[in-house]
Nucleic acid binder design. Structure first.
Length: 469
DNA sequence: TGAAATGTTGGGGCG
DNA sequence: ACGCCCCAACATTTC
C-alpha cells in the first residue's frame, strides 16, 4: 500500500490519527502544501515547524514533500504519479478548511482514489454535539458540561514506525518558500521565546505540568508571571494534540500531582478553544459578521490615528502599550492583556473588532481563525456568550490589579521604568518633579493618553444606545 | 473573565 | 447618655 498523508494543521508524529493509520497500512508519503493567507508571524513559525518536522521524518527514513499550488490538484497529481492507494488527512475545522477537505474528498473519490479523514485537532467532533433541542450550543458552560459528560479518555497514539521505501518525489525547498523575514528581520524576539515544532511543544507542556499547572487558577491572570502554558501556537500548528493535554492533565489529577481545581481550569481553557471552533463550524458567518446581528448597526468610528497608535503601543495607557509591544516583539500576548487591549480598541477607540482581528492575524504566532473571531467578538460584546458591551475595562484599574508592581509594564515600556508604582498606570497624573526624576517627558518619551478614559467610556456607552432595542 | 453610580450600614466624633 | 452627622466599608443596581 502507498498512502499519501496530506499534512495540514497537524505537524506532529505523536498522537496523530491520520499519520498513525497511514503508517499502519503501508508506505507513507507525507505532503505539505504551501498555505496561502497566513500572517507574517505565522509564516515565521511555520518555517521552523516544517524544518523540525522534516528532520523528525528524515530520521525515520521518510522525506517530507513540500509543494505549491491548488491542494486538490497537487495531491491528485502526486497520487497519480506514485499510483497511490489512498490519501489520508486530519480535518481542519475553519470554513475554508472544511470546504477544501470536502473538495479533496470529492475529487479523489471521482478519481477512484480511496481517502479518509480523521479528527486530530479537537477533543469533540463539532457536528456531534447538540443541546436538548437538537440545536448548536451558544453558551460555553452548558457546551463544556456536555463535552465533559461524553468525553472518555482514550489511549494516545504512539509515534508511528515507518517502513522505508524508495519512492522519489520532487519537493520544493523550504528556504525557497521565503517564510522568514529578511529585511528588516523582526524575528529575533520570537526566536528568543519560542521553539516551534513538536519537540518544543512537548518541552513546553512538560515544563508547564511540572512548574505552573498547580498555580494556574490563581496565577494565570498576571502577565508578569510565567503561569500560563504558552502552548497556543503549538496547538494552532498541531504540534501537540488537545487529546494529549486532556489525557495527561487527568492523569496528573488522578495521581494528585495537580490539584483538580487547577487542572480543570486549564482544561476549561482548552474547552474555549473547542467552543470557538464549534461556533465557527455551526455559524460560519461569524468570521465576517457579528454573531449578534444587532451589532450590524453599531456606529463604529474607525479612527485611523487611534488604530495606528494602538497597533504601535503608543496609546498613553501603559498596560495597553505594554501588551501591544509584547505582541510586536514576541508574536504573543498574555491572555489578560489581550482582553484589555481588545476592550480598549473596540470601546475606548470605538474601532470595529475586525481591525484588531486583522492586526492579531498578522502579528500573533498563535493566530487562529476560530479563536481570533470568537475572542474579538466576545470582547466587543457581539459574540456568542459574549461579555456585555457595557463591560468596559478601565486600563488604569486593570493595570493596578494585574500588574501591581509594574513589572510587566516596565519590561515592555522601558521608558517608564523609573516611574514610581503609584503613577505607573497613569503617568499623566504624576507631578513635574516626579516625571523629571524618572526622566519622562510626556509627549516626548511617552505619549499623553490618546483618549480620556471617562469621556471615551461615556462615548462608548452612548454608541451602544444606538443598537440597544 | 467590570466599573461606576447609588444605596445601606455602622462606628466614632461631637455638641 | 443621646441624637446627629460624616464617611468608610460593603452591598446592590445600572451601564
Amino acid at each position: 500500500m502507498k498512502i499519501i498523508h496530506w499534512l495540514r494543521e497537524d505537524l506532529r508524529l505523536f498522537d496523530n490519527p491520520a499519520l498513525h493509520y497511514a503508517a499502519s497500512q503501508g508506505d507513507v508519503v507525507p505532503v505539505f502544501i504551501y498555505p496561502e493567507g497566513l500572517g507574517s508571524a505565522s509564516y515565521w513559525w511555520l518555517h521552523h515547524s516544517l524544518r523540525h518536522l522534516a528532520d523528525s521524518l528524515r530520521e525515520k527514513g521518510v522525506p517530507l514533500i513540500l509543494r505549491t499550488g491548488e491542494p486538490t490538484v497537487v495531491i491528485r497529481e502526486i497520487a497519480k504519479d506514485i499510483d497511490a492507494d489512498a490519501v489520508v488527512w486530519n480535518r481542519v475545522y475553519s470554513p475554508s478548511g472544511i470546504t477544501l477537505g470536502e473538495a479533496m474528498k470529492c475529487e479523489l473519490s471521482r478519481d477512484g482514489v480511496a481517502n479518509q479523514s480523521f479528527n486530530g485537532q479537537l477533543l469533540i467532533e463539532p457536528t456531534k454535539i447538540f443541546n436538548k433541542q437538537g440545536k448548536p450550543f451558544k453558551v460555553f458552560t452548558p457546551f463544556w458540561r456536555h463535552c465533559l459528560s461524553v468525553l472518555n479518555p482514550s489511549e494516545l497514539l504512539p509515534k508511528p514506525d515507518f517502513k522505508k521505501h524508495s519512492m522519489h518525489l520532487e519537493s520544493d525547498s523550504l528556504d525557497d518558500w521565503g517564510l522568514r523575514p529578511t529585511k528588516p528581520d523582526w524575528a529575533s524576539g520570537l526566536k528568543r521565546l519560542w521553539q516551534p515544532g513538536e519537540r518544543g511543544a512537548q518541552d513546553r507542556w512538560h515544563r508547564f505540568i511540572e512548574t505552573s499547572a498547580n498555580k494556574y487558577l490563581g496565577g494565570r491572570d498576571f502577565p508578569s508571571k510565567p503561569n500560563t502554558s504558552l502552548l497556543s501556537p503549538h496547538l494552532v500548528f498541531g504540534e501537540i494534540s488537545p487529546r494529549q493535554l486532556w489525557h495527561d492533565t487527568n492523569e496528573c489529577i488522578a495521581i494528585q500531582a495537580v490539584d483538580s481545581s487547577n487542572g480543570n481550569k486549564f482544561l476549561s481553557e482548552i474547552g474555549w478553544r473547542e467552543f470557538s471552533r464549534y461556533l465557527l463550524v455551526h455559524f460560519p458567518s461569524i468570521e465576517e459578521r457579528p454573531f449578534n446581528e444587532r451589532f450590524n448597526a453599531f456606529p463604529w468610528q474607525d479612527n485611523s490615528v487611534l488604530i495606528e497608535a494602538w497597533k504601535r503601543g503608543k496609546t498613553g495607557y501603559p498596560i495597553v502599550d505594554a501588551g501591544m509591544r509584547e505582541l510586536w516583539h514576541t508574536g504573543y500576548m498574555h491572555n489578560r492583556v489581550r482582553m484589555i487591549v481588545a476592550s480598549f480598541l473596540t470601546k475606548h477607540c470605538l474601532s470595529h473588532w475586525k481591525h484588531g482581528m486583522d492586526w492579531f492575524w498578522d502579528t500573533l504566532v498563535d493566530a487562529d481563525i476560530a479563536n481570533n473571531t470568537a475572542s474579538w467578538q466576545w470582547v466587543a460584546g457581539c459574540g456568542a456568550d459574549a461579555s456585555p458591551y457595557f463591560r468596559i475595562f478601565n486600563p488604569i484599574l486593570q493595570g493596578d490589579k494585574f500588574d501591581k508592581d509594574g513589572t510587566y509594564i516596565k519590561q515592555w515600556v522601558p521608558e517608564l521604568k523609573d516611574l514610581p508604582k503609584k503613577y505607573i498606570n497613569k503617568p499623566w497624573e504624576a507631578d513635574e518633579l516626579t516625571l523629571s526624576v524618572a526622566n519622562v517627558k510626556l509627549g516626548k518619551h511617552y505619549p499623553f493618553p490618546i483618549v480620556d478614559h471617562t469621556q471615551a467610556r461615556n462615548a462608548a456607552l452612548a454608541a451602544y444606545q444606538v443598537i440597544k432595542q
